[in-house]
Each structure stands twice: as C-alpha cells, then as structure tokens.
Design a protein around this nucleic acid. Structure first.
Lengths: 242, 242
DNA sequence: TGTACATCAGTGAACGCGCGTTCACTGATGTAC
DNA sequence: TGTACATCAGTGAACGCGCGTTCACTGATGTAC
C-alpha cells in the first residue's frame, strides 16, 4: 500500500508537475466507469497518486473539475467536427454526412466526455468559458448549415440556416444519445447508427429540395442545378423566408 | 425534530400502508432536485417519514428503486403518447405532429422521469419489465410510423416503417434532450422547441413525398392523392423497399 | 556565481457527516379453527 | 364470535466506510540582488 505511494512519489518527486492535467484524465476515467454522478474528488486524487487535499490547489471543488472535463470535451468535439467538415470538401452534402458520422463517433469513442457535456446536469451557462466552448462546437454545425442553405435549389423555400443547423444537431444528438453511445445505456438497433442517421439526413435534405438519390456531382458544389423540379410550393412550415 | 416524526407516525400509525408508492414519489422528487446520480436511499426514506431501514422491505437496493422510477416513467410516457396519437385522428400527419409535441411536453413536465429513463446510466436491459415498458412506449411511435408508411404517396420509395419510427424518435429525443427539458440543462433557443420539431418533422415528411405545405384534407386520410408529383426517383438511401 | 527569501505545490492528519446495510426487535394485521 | 398464532412491515441503534474540507506544515522552485 504505502510503499506503492512512496515509490510513485520517488519517481516523480515532491511536485507532481502536471497535476491539473492528471486530475482531468483521472476524472475522465472515473466518469467512464461510474457516470458523471459517480465520481468523487477524493477518487480523482487517489488515481493521480496524490493526497486528497492536493486537488484544491487546482480546482475549487468537484463541480469545477467536472465542468473543466466538459469544457475540454467540447474543445475536442469541436476539433473533430471541424476536421470532419473539412470546409465542405469535396462537396457540401458529402461533408455534411461526414459531420454526422463524426458526431456519432464522438459519442461512441468518448462516452465519458459525452456524458459530462450533455448528461451531467451541469447548466451550460455555468461558466462563460464552458458556454463559449459549447457554442464554438455548435458553430461548426452552424457554418456547415450556412453553406447548405446557400445551396437550396432555386424556387424552393429557404429556411433559416440557424434552423437547419438546429435540426441537424437534434437529429445527430438524438441518434447518438439513443443508439450510438459508447456505454451500457446504448439501445440495440436493427441497423447501424451511422446508416440510420445518414438516411434521416438524406430524407431531410430531400425535403429541402436537394436531389439526394445520389450525391450532387463533382468538386465543390457547382451551385447544383437540381435534377428534379421543386416538388412543393415555396411556403415552408417555418414561415416565409427573409 | 423528533416530535415531527412522532406526529407523522401518529397520523399514519405504525404501518405506513403505502410505503412503496411513497418511496417512488420521494425518489422522483429527489431526482428532480439533484439529478439521478444525486439521490440516496436514506434520503428517500427520510422524505417518506420512515426509518432508513424501511425501504429494504420494498426494494433490494438503490438501483432497484431507480429502475422502478424509470419503469413507471415509461408507463406514463406510453400513456401520454397514446393519448396524443389518438389512433391517428383526425388525420395521420396531424396526429403525428401531436405525438412529437407530447414527447417534448413529457421532457418538459417530467424532468425527473425523463432523466431516470434516459440519462441515469441504467442499462435498458437491466430488468425485463423495464425493457418491456420501454418497448411499449416505443411501440406507440412504431405503430404511428406504420400508418404513415402506408400513406407514402405512390411512386415514392417506401422506407421501412421501423426506420421511420426510429427517425421520428431520434428527432424528438434530440430536440427534447437539448432544448425542451424541464431542468437547468436546457439550452436557450431562438424559437420554441415545439416549432423547431414541427418544422423538422414536416421537412422530413416532405422528403418522403408528403405534401406538407398544408395538412392533407379531410377526415381520416382519404389515401391522399398528393398535390405535387413525386419529386425524386424511387430509390431511397435505405435501399430498395421490400 | 552565490545567497536569501518569497512563492508555489503538495503533505498528512484530522474533523464531522451522512450513507448503506445489518440486526434483533415489535406493533399491526390477517387467518385458522 | 373469540382466540392463538403466523406473517408482515416498520423501528432504532449500531457498524464501518469514504467523502469533502480544513489546517499548519514542508519540500521544491524561481528570482532579486
């Protein structure tokens, strides 16, 4: 018991050097094990090989640690969404689909981050930096929707990009939370979560007038002449476009 | 302090009479206050005005109580969805929209149930009765999708009803979890969650070939001749219909 | 280059607390005859 | 209708435990001169 601690101490010296980081990692591991409600400050300290009083040098309390985990989660989430979006290459719809897959992949590969971010009960506006991180992640989706909105075939009603972004977010979030999460609470599905979401998004896009039986052609969206004529008159359920 | 307990005891006698029920209610209240991770067995006993050992007569442990709450949640959820669906009256699309609103209303009005059901980390297949309750609730959505699938305009690809049900579920769940929940974790929105979901569902339905600029006419779906011709060729992203 | 000192980051012992769980118990209720 | 008894549902005291938090402390590091 104690010799183990002594040894660890001997290895690293009196000062840990990187305790804040180590505590974040420890918390992440504990959340993965027991859920966001089930990890304790003391536990995190123990996992980092440090006395129970040490964390107080870096975090006011358990909540601040939890919210730091969530914040880092949003940062990584944003990075992965940005990479997946890849500025809309090779074409907007393809990149959009990739964005959805990235959402699911995050929920699957990082269940601890995911639950800290979305299911820990933390109010998003707890801290301004947390909120900002969350908004930057959403910003990636928002920007993608912006591009997509600009491509809505002429003659079709053009819903606000913000609304399209929210629609996409809720679809991805719904599928991820119910069927793609990387923990016990995942529900069984007669198909892959990726396929489910892809079909959902494609039907939705078709509802906006995009031809989606196959992807729009070649590189970078030649402002896509739609293959089929607009199916419905231009007054959408969201009211008249401004 | 103690006189209070004495008094309560005097009122109800030695036997509580309805302790199991009282504990469920207490747990529900505590979950609403502190989240599913934050309620304790002892706390529930205290709120029910009973000694800390009493709950063991009715629940093996904390988890069994939590899962009972979730189960009851699914039962009430099912009842409310069933009522909202109202067997597809006055027409399928209208009833479908009402179903979505009921989903959001439940998340908003019953945040404690909602988080016990979806965010407590309980595996759905923890107990067979829990799983069955969850499946009965989903069954309402499934049946509605079944009806909707039968109405897909001729000439349009007909996705499996199961998939449509899952799509609807994930949309509703996404919007509910992010924007309609009745607790602190709800995100702010530039519009109502109801409107957001309604628009989302309508665009989706249009993607399936439904005319949705206004509702299909008349009582009980006269097998709706669509106003507009099928917008896209009949091969959906879900493969060929069987 | 050396020294004194301030600051930083961690220690470890201690505390009060509430939790989950157990135990022998007891009051109330139901039932057989 | 009364009585004896079994069963049920709750008591309350006790336990060991781990948590969050505090405190005076100390070893390591950085810096002014």
């Amino acid at each position: 018991m104690s010799w183990r601690k002594e040894q660890r101490r001997a290895e690293r010296g009196y000062h840990h050097g990187n305790l804040k980081e180590a505590l974040l990692q420890a918390a992440l591991g504990l959340i993965a094990e027991k859920g966001p409600g089930g990890f304790t400050f003391a536990d995190a300290a123990r996992m980092a090989g440090v006395s129970p009083a040490a964390p107080y040098r870096h975090f006011r309390d358990r909540d601040e640690l939890l919210s730091s985990v969530a914040q880092r989660g949003f940062e990584q989430f944003e990075a992965q969404l940005t990479a997946a979006w890849d500025d809309g290459r090779p074409d907007t719809v393809t990149a959009f689909e990739r964005l959805g897959k990235a959402y699911l992949a995050f929920a699957h590969n990082e269940p601890a981050f995911y639950s800290a971010m979305f299911e820990s009960g933390l109010p998003v506006d707890l801290s301004p930096t947390l909120q900002a991180a969350s908004e930057r992640a959403f910003g990636v989706i928002r920007a993608a929707a912006e591009r997509l909105a600009a491509m809505v075939p002429p003659g079709m009603p053009r819903p606000p990009a913000m609304m399209m972004a929210l629609h996409f977010w809720s679809m991805s979030h719904g599928v991820a939370s119910l069927f793609a999460r990387g923990d016990q609470a995942r529900r069984k599905l007669p198909m892959s979560a990726e396929d489910l979401l892809e079909a959902e998004v494609l039907i939705y896009l078709r509802g906006l007038g995009f031809p989606t039986d196959r992807r729009p052609p070649g590189p970078n969206d030649p402002s896509a002449k739609p293959a089929a004529p607009p199916p419905v008159p231009p007054a959408g359920p969201w009211g008249t476009p401004k």
